[in-house]
Structure formats: C-alpha cells, structure tokens
Write a protein that binds this DNA or RNA. Structure first.
Lengths: 389, 389
DNA sequence: CGCAATACGCTTTGATCTTTACAAAACCGC
DNA sequence: GCGGTTTTGTAAAGATCAAAGCGTATTGCG
C-alpha cells in the first residue's frame, strides 16, 4: 500500500496545500491573472487573491503591473513564479571533461562552464578541476553558494546509497572518493551523486527524445556501454543503485562490443584510438564493407543486452544515446531489426536528440526534482536554500 | 514531475481528507479509541470524534461499546473499520485447476472454492468451470454479485491493456478469449486480468517471503519458467504488460530449462511426465548422481535469466516460487552461487513461503489494491460497490 | 460623454478544526 | 461505602479559511 498522507490536515496545512497548488499552477505557465489561476486550481477568486499576495510577500512570486492590454475591460495584474528565488547545479564529472550547468527554479540555464581534464588524472586533480568549474559557474552568474538549493553530480559507475562508486568505476582511483562529502564542504544544500547513464536517461525524458514516454530504456552507446531506466515516469536506481548494469553479464557482450569498431581492419595508423569508432562509422556510411561489418557486429552485441532490458521492462521507448548517437543513422535500423527478432513487443527505437551535454542536463533535472520533492513535502515557508538532513 | 494534487482544496474536501486519514488509521489496527486515533493522525480529539461518528453513520466503521476495561479511567468506546462493507474476489485460472478466493476489505479470506480442469480443456469448458467456481464462491459466503467490489483473474501469458493474452499463452485457444468481458457479464465492479507470475510476486510481498522488501524479483520455477517484478513497492507491468518475459530471449535458456529435469536419465517408466521433476528432486536429495547433475543444469540455466533480471533491476530480494519451490532446499544454494558469480551486487535469495495458492492470493491482493485506489482517489461517499468506468 | 465589460477588493456567511472547559464513568485507596 | 484520580465524552467558544455576493475601479467602444 502506498504510504499516503496518514496524517490529518488542519487549517494552516490547508492554506499551505492551496498555496502549493497555486505555485504549481503558476509554474510551467506564462504570467497569470487571478481569474486564470482560479480556473486552473478550482479555488475561488478571492481565495486565490489572498494566497497570491501571500506568495508575493513571501518571495515565491512576483507581480507584473498591467501594461497595455489587448482585451476589453480593466487589465488584470499578472502573477509570475519567481524562478530566481533559487538556483540549482548539475555537474557532469566525466572522464575527459567536467561540465557544470547552473539553472533557476524554472530550469532556465543561466551559466555553463566546461573544462577538459586528462582521462588518467588522479582524483585530487579531478576534484581540483571540479571545484574550479563549480565556483566559476556559481560566481559567473553572480551567485553565491547560499543561492544554490541543490547540487547533483554525475559520475560513471554504479552509485550506492552513500553516493560512492564502490562497485566499479573507470576513473582512476575514484572508488575511494567521497564526492558528497567533498561537495558538502562548499554547499549546505542537498547534494546528490548519480550514475551518468541514469542522468542522461532523465535528460532525454525532460527535453530530449522521449518527452512523451513514462517507460524508457536509455542506451549509452560509446566507448563504454551502459543503460538508464525510467519506469512509470521515475528514474529507477535499484535497491543498491546498480540498476541497468546488464553489461556485467558475460552472456551480454557489452563490455567488448565497442572493440568491433576500435579494432576494425582498415583504420589508418594516423587515426587515434579515441577517434577510430568515428572513422569506422564514416567509412561505413560511405559503403566500406569492412566498416559496415564492424558496425553490424557492434549492433548485434549491443542488441542482446538491449533485448534483455526490453524483455525485462517492456518499455515504450528505447533511446540510443552517448557518443555513438551521432551515427544513429547507421545504428537504429539494424538495432530495430535485431530487437524485432529477439523481443516480444517491439518498443519505439529513437536516437538521442541531446548532444554530449545530456548527462549534465540530467543532473540539473535531478537537482530540480530534489527541490520539488522538498518543496511539495516540506511545504513552503520562505524561499531559502534547504539544508541537508 | 509527479502529478500531485494540482487542484485546490476547499472545506468539504478537507473533511474528506481527514475522514480518509481516519479510515487509514483505523485499518491495519485493532479497534481503536478516539484518543488513539487522535494521536495517530495528529487531529484533535473532538475532530476525530465527529469524523468517527460520521464514518459509523455512513457505514465505514462500527462502534464497540466498552466492556470490561483493564486500565484506570473511564473505559473508551472503540471504533473499528467495517471490513464487511465490501468483498473482493481473486481467481487463479490455471492450467490444471481454477481456484477462487473471497475476502473482506481487510483481506480476511472467507471462502475458498477449487475445482480441477483438464489442461487440454477448450476455452468454453474452462470458462464454464470458472463461472461455476466463482458463483459457488460468492454464494457459499452468502453474498451476491453486488457485494463484490473488485475481481482479479490470473492467467498465464503476458496480459495487454485490454486484459487479453494476445502475445502468448499455453492454454489452448485462450488467445481469443476476452476474459474481462466474460466476467463483466456477472459483475458490475472493476475487473482486472493479470499475469500469474506477477500476481504471485504480489502475494509474496503481501504475506510471503518478502514482506520487508520494496524491490523484488519473483521467479516462478515449474514446468514453465516466469518472473514477476515489484519495483519501489509497486507491481510493474511494463508499457504493454510484458515486463519480466526475459524467458523469450534465446540466450536465456528458460524455455528448455525444465527439460533437464524431465529428461533426466533414470526416471522410471511408471512416473508420469508431470511427476518426473518431483522424482528427480527426490532422487537428488538422496544422492543420485544423475539427478544431482540434472538439478544443477536446471539451476544453471535458470540463473542466467535470473542474473539478467537482477543486473537490470538490482532488487533487494529474489524469491524462488512455483511448483519447484517445494524443492527449494536443493535449488537455493546453487542458485546463490551462480548469481554471486554473475551479478554485481548480491540480492537476498529466498524460497517462497506460500504454497500453490500464491497466484490466487496475489489476485486477491490486486483486487484489494484496486479498491484502495478507488477509495483514496475518488473519496468515500457511502460504502457501495464501485462501478466500472 | 455615457455605457458595457471586466477585474479588483471588501464584507458577510458558512464550514471546519482547535482549544478550553466540564460532566460522566470507571478504578483505587481508605 | 466514599472521595480522589484518571480517562473519556461532549459542549461551547475562538480562530482560520474558503465561498458567495456586491460595490468600485478601469478600460474600450459608440
């Protein structure tokens, strides 16, 4: 049974509930008149009026005095959610780069800071770059740490409940890093660390290829292969944070799938190992037989794991993302064919519409979700950054 | 974002919310005094008093006048949820038998009717037996169809949104059966049809081996192999109702796994094919080498699919159920060893504690859930059977 | 300039919960 | 048996909140 509000509701709580419903009605909408809000919430106009004024005086909303009106009648005051009341951070701690995004409570991105880092960099160096990027991002927007309401960091590898990657991570020495503690020294707000594939999945549902779906399997296709799962509209982590790690099963040949591309015969010596896959995709697009074969072998291995995910979860959509999604034109059709052969019910197979920023975008979205959860469970007293615990 | 109450709350709705929280506080508890309810809900004693009296006059609760009291002070009136206000049905439409359970709103089973049916029976015959069993179950408890608030039927095979098993089912001719329509002729309440593995999983979480877990992979081990998934405490069906059908993947050798047992050398001619597996388990328990080998090969095949599910979902618990769960003593340890070898994070592996009735029990639970959803979303006006749509 | 339409803001009314107070019913010690 | 204690039941008063109604302000149009 779902643990719904088993607690009783008194009058102040009623006011709070109605204030929250006004906030909800205010968000994701253009500035609204009291009458519009009244219709949207079902509350009476006077009730909306006093609540809206309370929201303004508490700092949750701003009021736009009427300017030139288009309709007849007295022009209405318009209320607007004050998205600038707080800000959230999303950071992608990648192997080659660190990317931080700062957004207001509406999710509008106001600052982007990116810095590259060596793949083989030690944790101390990577953390130093992370600090630089984060402080530059916050300061660059003219904000301070106290303006930040939630921080989410994306890392590779399964993230456990304590925010560490104890099982596995390709970043050198990263297993011993306590990222929540490190970031906690800079921020007093809630800090979340999550797996990069999962966050990319979240991003695709937010503003990517699967905004219409509640059941999504996201495939990260790149030099690493991974997956993120959204079930019934919620990102699923599993009991220990290791959901989606189907690649660990040897029968599913995800670990070595990219090698078909990297070791494809015919790649010139001048092409670096990191760029080999891109070269092979290009060659395949131009009809090179060896390259086409390599792509097909890659897709065939990818499809076994994808089929296992699809058969387990029966999703509406499979999104193909990651570095190889730039070559989705070559991957999607053979992937569809393989899935058709292997699965019971065929899902929609789509290419990611977000670029390499999808992970940081997903981190941003998780921060926004964190704020939402706090807001709509703890209630709104005054708009200040929530503190941990 | 979760679609929470975007709608405003007026005073009557407030009373309804508080009535619901009293109902919640009343259920899953022994008869309670007003003071206890007041503490449990946070509402004041007078408020609880008037609400409780309202619930009694509406038929949702009954009042127990004070008898002999043990404590000091004036003995309190006790209120009790009226579980007999409505009843729900859970029916297992199996290959060999049809089993119907009738329970009150607290889940207390008040009637059980079972009847065997030939595995090769045509749909018409199976439906006739189903009707007999269901009417006998309802009439046997002295109830009528209008007392039934929800009906859930369990069938084998993936169930789509319309309640049919269009993909696949081992029951002969069953694909063309429209079970919701058939049952809808007898009942006006909501009717749900669901896959048997999924319902068995629900039962294990309700009163079985995994009452403590929210993330469960249930394995049905028998002449057929199947799975049911509970994620974050909710039974997951997938977008098309085909979640958990990992057995369809050829790399996962679930389809033929039981054959290791059935075709084990050394089974006497006198043992019927249906009983071969039981014979092999017994022989293995007594040290027969061939039998032990067959069991090990069975577990090895079972474990590949189980590992795919575990790696995908990272559950807290794996429950081994189905006909073979009587021999769980032979299966669990080798299954653990294989999973340990194949998985990242090892889940708890447990044997089902429910017998062959688990599917019907799960169907009952889904009916109760259906009632709960209606109750706590539509609200409580008067206790009468909900109508479809 | 007057009229109509719309929005604003105030007042009244009704519903609900909480607090406070007091009577009723059991038990305990003397 | 009787008063004291404790807990329950109930009634009255106070507070909070939303709904309904109505007068006022502002704008556009003829």
């Amino acid at each position: 049974m779902t643990e719904l509000a088993t607690t009783g509701t008194d009058l102040p709580r009623l006011r709070e509930l109605n204030s929250l419903s006004i906030v909800r009605a205010l968000r994701d909408h253009p500035p609204s008149t009291v009458t519009e809000l009244s219709q949207r919430t079902g509350l009476s106009r006077p009730a909306v009026d006093v609540i809206a004024q309370g929201l303004v005086s508490d700092g949750w909303a701003t009021v736009l005095e009427p300017g030139a009106s288009s309709a007849v009648g007295r022009p209405a005051r318009r209320y607007q959610f004050r998205a600038g009341a707080g800000y959230v951070l999303g950071v992608d701690v990648g192997a080659h780069k660190i990317l931080a995004l700062l957004a207001d409570l509406d999710g509008n991105i106001v600052q982007t800071v990116r810095q590259s880092v060596a793949a083989e960099a030690e944790p101390a160096e990577r953390l130093a770059v992370l600090d630089e990027v984060v402080t530059a991002c916050v300061a660059g927007a003219g904000k301070t740490a106290s303006d930040i309401w939630a921080v989410t960091a994306a890392v590779t590898g399964a993230v456990d409940a304590s925010g560490r990657t104890s099982f596995f991570t390709p970043l050198p020495g990263w297993k011993s890093v306590n990222l929540p503690a490190h970031l906690g020294a800079h921020f007093s707000c809630p800090i979340v660390v999550e797996n990069d594939c999962k966050l990319a999945a979240l991003a695709e549902r937010w503003k990517g290829a699967a905004t219409d779906a509640d059941d999504i399997v996201y495939l990260l296709g790149g030099m690493r292969t991974g997956a993120g799962l959204i079930i019934d509209g919620v990102l699923r982590r599993g009991f220990g944070g290791a959901a989606g790690e189907i690649g660990a099963l040897k029968h599913v040949r995800w670990l070595n799938a990219p090698e078909h591309l990297q070791n494809c015969p015919g790649v010139p010596e001048t092409v670096s190992p990191d760029d080999a896959a891109a070269w092979v995709f290009n060659a395949a697009r131009e009809g090179d037989r060896a390259a086409r074969g390599a792509v097909n072998r890659y897709v065939k291995d990818l499809a076994v794991g994808a089929a296992a995910l699809v058969l387990t979860l029966d999703p509406q959509v499979v999104v193909f993302g990651g570095g190889f999604s730039r070559s989705a034109d070559l991957v999607l059709d053979p992937l569809r064919n393989e899935l058709q052969r292997l699965c019971l019910r065929m899902p929609d197979v789509r290419a990611s519409t977000l670029g390499a920023d999808s992970v940081a975008l997903g981190a941003l979205k998780l921060s926004l979700n964190e704020v939402d959860v706090r807001l709509f469970s703890a209630g709104l007293s005054a708009p200040v950054a929530p503190r941990r615990q």
